[in-house]
């Protein structure tokens, strides 16, 4: 028998490793029983609602090696447990990759950004309210979707890439990192692998239970941003119901190289329209060599939303997404 509201933390082991090796070993040993804890903003709701029941938490914020921003040979590296506030306010990121600083600065609320980490923002679970309520839906290992049905409340759900589950990626920083062609550094006891930001996220067709390709025992430890798009012309915009403490209805991150008003190259991604940040490759291809204009923006917007499959209540995302692409192009 279940009650409808718990709101009490269950008994849970808390591990607070102080170094990388210890954390990776714990992640390896505990496997799916070890919940990775960053700022806790996605964690505590799950646990207090008793909708996820790991037996242990591995707190990652004590590991200095996974914190902070540093320059590398061809770009920068940001530790995964760096707070969003630090990223939003970091002078190097602001000066070179303002796209990410802007995106990080629009996540949730100041209080959440103060404790929330980049890693947490990237690997946070989807916000579909049916799933968050603890219902045994596809994403929770069940055999049903409550959101995608004739009466489902799916205003915030996906336009693209649905496969039984119609949940969307809630992250603001993820589209920015896809647009910046970042690389995710994933560590485990058996070593390290590098994954392109675009390939880091996974949709329900391939894995309905997870939002990223992280395997058990693996930890996202850093994000590397190459200088490829440094100081490009950036555009980030998040449209949410509320201006603070909300998830995007649609967001867009765009990086462009423009010379004399002509787009030399572009990289764009939209969030909250698919389970993964949606890279707009067709739009990018169309834009190259074109002069920025209102008409080009409108054309790009139309191209971006081709193939969208709205659900009951999210038709508005189609013109909204088209408009955001338009704004990014003409900006």
């Amino acid at each position: 028998m279940v009650a409808t509201s718990h709101d009490v933390m269950p008994d849970i082991e808390l591990y607070q490793p102080a170094d990388e090796a210890n954390a990776l070993e714990l992640a390896d040993t505990l496997g799916s029983d070890g919940w990775l804890l960053g700022g806790g903003q996605d964690t505590y709701g799950w646990l207090k609602d008793r909708n996820k029941s790991p037996s242990a938490m591995i707190e990652l914020t004590g590991i200095d090696a996974w914190k902070g921003v540093s320059e590398t040979g061809d770009g920068i590296e940001i530790g995964a447990v760096t707070t969003l506030t630090e990223i939003a306010e970091h002078s190097l990121i602001q000066s070179r990759f303002a796209l990410l600083a802007t995106a990080a600065g629009q996540v949730a609320s100041p209080q959440i950004r103060n404790v929330g980490t980049l890693g947490g923002n990237l690997i946070q679970d989807t916000r579909c309210w049916y799933y968050r309520r603890g219902l045994s839906c596809y994403r929770a290992g069940g055999n049903i979707c409550y959101a995608d049905s004739p009466e489902g409340l799916n205003r915030e759900h996906a336009l693209f890439g649905s496969s039984r589950c119609v949940a969307v990626s809630p992250s603001d920083t993820a589209p920015a990192l896809v647009a910046l062609d970042a690389t995710m550094v994933v560590s485990s006891a058996s070593g390290q692998r590098l994954i392109a930001a675009e390939d880091f996220f996974v949709g329900p067709a391939r894995d309905i239970l997870n939002m990223t390709v992280l395997n058990e025992g693996e930890i996202l430890t850093a994000v590397r941003i190459p200088n490829t798009w440094a100081n490009a012309e950036y555009y980030f915009e998040k449209v949410a119901d509320r201006n603070v403490w909300d998830f995007a209805l649609v967001n867009i991150a765009s990086a462009m190289r423009v010379e004399n008003g002509v787009i030399q190259d572009a990289r764009m991604a939209c969030g909250a329209v698919e389970c993964v940040p949606r890279r707009l490759t067709q739009v990018e291809n169309m834009l190259r060599g074109q002069a920025r204009s209102e008409d080009l923006g409108a054309e790009a917007g139309e191209l971006a939303v081709q193939g969208a499959r709205p659900l009951n209540y999210n038709h508005f995302k189609v013109p909204l997404m088209a408009n955001l692409v338009k704004r990014a192009v003409r900006a």
Binding site: N312, H315, P319
Partner: peptide
């Protein structure tokens, strides 16, 4: 009057919704 209602109105979206 929420954001989506305003966008739908401006875009002339015809929602085949309940």
């Amino acid at each position: 009057i929420t954001t989506d209602m305003i966008i739908n109105h401006i875009a002339g979206t015809q929602e085949d919704a309940v």
